[in-house]
Design a binder for these strands. Structure first.
Lengths: 151, 151
DNA sequence: AAACAATATTGTAATCATTACAATATAATT
DNA sequence: AATTATATTGTAATGATTACAATATTGTTT
């Protein structure tokens, strides 16, 4: 989604394109690293000094419900958010905690068991060790979830 | 896994097959409904009156790390546990909250992006509305996560 | 433009699953 | 039986999320 479309996208869904909401969407677009509420809040506070964490929560709930944001609950206690809604999987490195995106044809997953289910959301989560950590003999926590998996 | 093998499975992994641990495994085998810690604790307390919730947490962590139990974090605030480790997906009905298992060939998902990653765990989570709720014009919360998806 | 209603934002307090940790109990080993 | 190691227990602390009431902002009507 192009940054300037945010306002349109919100209006289209009868969501008031308020300053805070647009800023949060813009932030997600700029930081496609699956940030947590706290990261979003801390960073945006520099822009909007009066910002409340509750607003961040509210906004993300609204965006998620509207399908404009993807909720990632890969196991962290903290929920993460992703503005990319196209199909892709998430890989979490159990060593450094980084979360990588990877391409995957989720529609090919259509299971016949689900023929009578209405499916709104599909998530694929893998876990393991990323190449960086495999190479470095499992060191510490340098990368914090920004990568895209592409050898 | 057959109930009687639990002791063997634990020993094989150098995990002491204590009473509590065996009971928890047995419970998971009998209740393949992806129970929460609280459900396990509450039910097993009838058997083991001194049982502590901390023990349930400890045991599940150990079992998960040993690969004997699958951790489900599909979005509930509460983590759920599944003793079935064979590949299958989980579908959560956003209306009634039920969690269904469905068959899926997760290995077919191998993404070339991940060729240099070491993958330990693969999870597929779908969300939407289950047939029961679709049929009933979206009523309330009757089924609490015990189904298997098979029309 | 003023008044009013509707909606958004904010801040604080409450909730609740999970973890930390110290104490006790149990099992394994010598 | 004595000693060490491991498991279990209970309570207190943590921390993300939610509830809620108060304030601010926006939109609408007259």
């Amino acid at each position: 989604m192009k940054p300037l479309d945010f306002e349109q996208e919100l209006k289209k869904r009868n969501i008031n394109p308020s300053h805070q909401r647009l800023k949060i969407m813009e932030y997600l677009a700029r930081h496609q690293c699956h940030p947590t509420v706290d990261q979003i809040y801390t960073d945006l506070q520099k822009d909007i000094s009066t910002l409340s964490k509750t607003t961040v929560y509210n906004t993300l709930h609204i965006l998620a419900q509207a399908g404009l944001v993807r909720v990632i609950t890969i196991e962290d206690k903290e929920t993460r958010y992703d503005i990319l809604t196209e199909d892709h999987g998430h890989f979490k490195c159990e060593n450094c905690g980084a979360i990588y995106d990877f391409q995957i044809d989720i529609n090919a997953l259509a299971s016949k068991d689900l023929s009578h289910f209405k499916i709104y959301d599909k998530n694929v989560y893998f876990k393991g060790i990323c190449p960086k950590c495999l190479g470095n003999n499992l060191p510490g926590t340098e990368n914090l979830s920004v990568q895209t998996a592409q050898s």
